[in-house]
Design a protein around this nucleic acid. Structure first.
Lengths: 255, 255
DNA sequence: CTACAGCCTGACGTAACGTCAGACTCAAGC
DNA sequence: GCTTGAGTCTGACGTTACGTCAGGCTGTAG
């Protein structure tokens, strides 16, 4: 009658296979976040492969800093398939890795300064702490997007869960920050550094339109309206940054 | 009278400079973990550069998963200078990055399997979750090192704080795991992969002897006694793995 | 002189489990 | 057939690292 085929595992066993604790499984069960596929007559939890896939998704979403409560709602409304989960995981981990690379560069800068006996570079140190803390900010969107703008995204809301969108916004914030820095540093749009930024830019767009023309259209509509946004409303990136990326992309095509 | 020179900052300001919250500063103050260099007559906290350096160290040690309580004791007994802090930070972050790289490889493996419609690869998935959780294990040493072995390390205890040693043990565990895997996979000791492992091996040794001959001697003493360890006592790595690294190092010298 | 932003000290709240306690299950051994 | 030990269950309270008020000073800009 039931579709739960394949081997079923008891709590301890499943925990060992997935690298979490039994208590965590209990916890997720009570929260309704991960209910085991079955139970024995005696009430022992039995976990199957479907539970395994779900645990993967939970781990990923937890990694990007979402609280379990939100993860629950998210997975209720929107079950990702395995391929999408893996894509999301790669996205997230690559972002994390870039953050660590930035921290390493900041540390190296700081080390050079220390080695030459110079003054402490507060900016570099701050960057290190920021990366090291790496707490779930998530306030980026709340801060920068008013209700007004959120309404415009409503059309997309039905397709992509908002939490994932917000995570994307954080990725954007990070990338935009680097681009703005490159612009004010006078980096050549044809340079390798600029090319790398442009590549990430288009990749992020691709990740969030996901090949879906409807979403792509929604994005275009939103950004086409950029000129009409209230002036008090902070723009996500400067016109210079936008121009920079366009030039970099153009240079790429030429080269 | 006092040595606290340079600019002093009030809580909010200092928090902004370092990327933490005011509440965090209060918290650390109450714990005695980071007492501000001074106070105004009205009781306002004033933070200077010394506090900044200390906050750096706290952030680093927190990053490797130590609870604040242990960090406190650690910093009381053993204040690292800025250069050492930075070296430790780089060590730690590089380790983290390697872990992310492993996760990426695992994800790519999983993606290939999924793309070809194969069976889910439990091992790859487990690795992903492990890396993603990345919780403070720290039980590695407790599990693998009996009191007997710990006594032998007593001579080193006076020089390097035990928490840092334990973190090193975790790094070792990670590296050893990879070496053992390479051995059982029949990897050629002269291959690039083996060379990379050998390089990390010697680097880890360097990091923990730190150029200090006394520590180096302590290590030698401990491992020279490896043959005499009780047989029930699990060895940190197999003789095959040790031989593998020796061969790889030898191949490196020849090449 | 009065706002009002910023600081203080408790004190309670929270997230994601850890850690018992007390009772049940079950395959193995005597 | 009974015990034993490893594993499981459900509460329920503990813990870490803060978040979030509440109630009350401070200090400076208008």
């Amino acid at each position: 009658m039931n579709k739960t085929m394949g081997t079923l595992h008891r709590a301890r066993e499943f925990a060992g296979l997935t690298g979490v604790t039994v208590r965590t499984l209990h916890h997720y069960d009570r929260l309704g976040l991960l209910k085991p596929s079955g139970r024995t007559a005696a009430g022992y939890r039995l976990y199957g492969e479907r539970d395994f896939a779900r645990l993967q998704q939970i781990a990923t979403l937890k990694f990007i800093g979402l609280p379990l409560k939100q993860i629950k709602g998210l997975l209720e409304r929107n079950t990702l398939d395995l391929a999408a989960t893996l894509r999301l995981q790669r996205e997230v981990i690559e972002g994390q890795r870039r953050r660590l690379d930035m921290a390493l560069r900041a540390i190296e800068r700081a080390e050079r300064v220390v080695a030459t006996g110079g003054e402490p570079d507060w900016e570099a140190f701050k960057k290190i702490i920021e990366v090291i803390n790496m707490q779930n900010d998530m306030e980026w969107t709340d801060k920068y997007y008013s209700e007004e703008a959120k309404e415009k995204l409503a059309g997309m809301r039905d397709r992509i869960p908002p939490e994932v969108i917000e995570q994307g916004q954080r990725d954007w914030a990070e990338l935009i920050g680097e681009v703005e820095a490159a612009v004010s540093a006078g980096v050549d749009p044809a340079s390798e550094r600029a090319q790398s930024l442009a590549a990430r830019w288009s990749k992020l767009i691709g990740a969030f339109t996901g090949g879906d023309p409807a979403i792509s259209e929604g994005l275009n509509k939103l950004y086409a309206d950029k000129a009409n946004w209230p002036s008090a409303f902070p723009k996500p990136y400067s016109d210079e940054a936008g121009a920079f990326i366009c030039q970099a992309a153009a240079a790429h095509k030429k080269g």
